[in-house]
Nucleic acid binder design. Structure first.
Lengths: 209, 209
DNA sequence: ACATGTGAAAGTTTTCACAGCG
DNA sequence: CGCTGTGAAAACTTTCACATGT
């Protein structure tokens, strides 16, 4: 099967988002240079990326927005519904829940885990909050393959191990901990300080001559 | 001056984090393969990255943790204190504030902007919350060059324009909006749905044969 | 004309592999 | 020895440029 690098997948998700915008503005057709402008990319790159999803544009009217969207989604989305576990319902957990709620037709947060007794068994954004001790049962029962870790770093490693133990294949880690795992697990470390430090580094950059 | 790509900068920040961990465990010296293991990278890459920061290890004892840290920090950090503006004090804004608080010796969130009157003039994590109308005054007064946008998408574009107008050079955008700006502005779009969609895509991936 | 799809070139990043050193 | 620093190769990514189609 065709492989796609993380970069290409990222851009395809971006095109999907841009196309949805165009769709909502009733734009019917679009050219690679239109997408390129909005994505700050080279048109050739967009054409090359789109080769992957198997939809051919027309040299006259470019790409049909609806059809292209359909093909990108078909390429990106898994066949069945993807359940996601959220670990931690602090400020960050709440904002993630809120942000993801109703955003995606196939992927949805399906279970929240906490240790705070006040939060357990409450339903927030349609999602039940379970005790962290029930992690294994619920993750297995719902065939959860994706987890978002939104807790502080001290227990992150243990939780991540438990998640993988019961079948999770991808982890998005917002905690401060650096997780390293077998290569077949997809780990995205999103320590928020990194973005700020990078921004600081590149804000020094003066204009080239 | 030596240029560093975003990728290299990202890894240097990672090394710094790992080195701080080693430092706190009183580890004195470290080899490239130790760092490589913790960062899930190739030792040669680490050695090459470290060439940039101008600190030479010893073939016998590898790198001195303190000295290397010092050199990486010198390379990464700006000369003066970097003030950061946070736009939006919802759940996400609060979690970012909390997360960054006291984390960094040089970079700190220095001003929060909101439109909710209940939040204005309160001080959270040592940081004052201002009315969004005072953006220009405060950003200029504090020479703020970095902004974190943690509000919903509808007003993001306008706010980003205003920020750039008054001197901001780097923007970290957590909203749903796709911002595109002149090349000299560093923009990091961190739509949280992207991470989840990527995770979903790559969790499909089966083990290679 | 003008836009697509794509072979080939250019550019970037990663890894190999080895000289050289304590 | 077993490490570092690094030239050179390999791998990957982006861009150019053009044949082709309407």
């Amino acid at each position: 099967m065709k492989t796609a690098s993380e970069k290409v997948v990222h851009r395809l998700i971006l095109y999907k988002k841009l196309l949805k915008n165009f769709q909502s503005k009733s734009v019917r057709n679009i050219f690679s240079h239109n997408l390129a402008e909005h994505a700050s990319l080279n048109p050739a790159q967009i054409r090359r990326d789109l080769m992957l999803v198997g939809y051919d544009g027309s040299t006259v009217s470019g790409y049909n927005v609806n059809d292209l969207l359909f093909c990108i989604e078909k390429f990106l989305y898994p066949n069945e519904i993807q359940n996601v576990a959220l670990i931690g319902l602090g400020n960050l957990g709440k904002s993630i829940l809120d942000y993801c709620y109703g955003r995606h037709p196939i992927i949805a947060i399906n279970a929240i885990f906490e240790k705070d007794p006040n939060k357990i068994n409450r339903i927030i954004c349609g999602t039940r909050c379970y005790h962290i001790d029930d992690l294994e049962i619920i993750v297995k029962k719902n065939s959860i393959k994706i987890a978002i870790i939104a807790i502080s770093s001290s227990v992150t490693e243990t939780i991540a191990k438990r998640l993988i133990e019961c079948g999770v294949k991808s982890i998005i880690n917002y905690s401060n901990a650096c997780l390293s795992f077998p290569a077949e697990i997809y780990v995205e470390n999103r320590d928020m300080m990194f973005a700020v430090e990078k921004a600081a580094f590149f804000s020094k950059k003066e204009k080239e001559i």
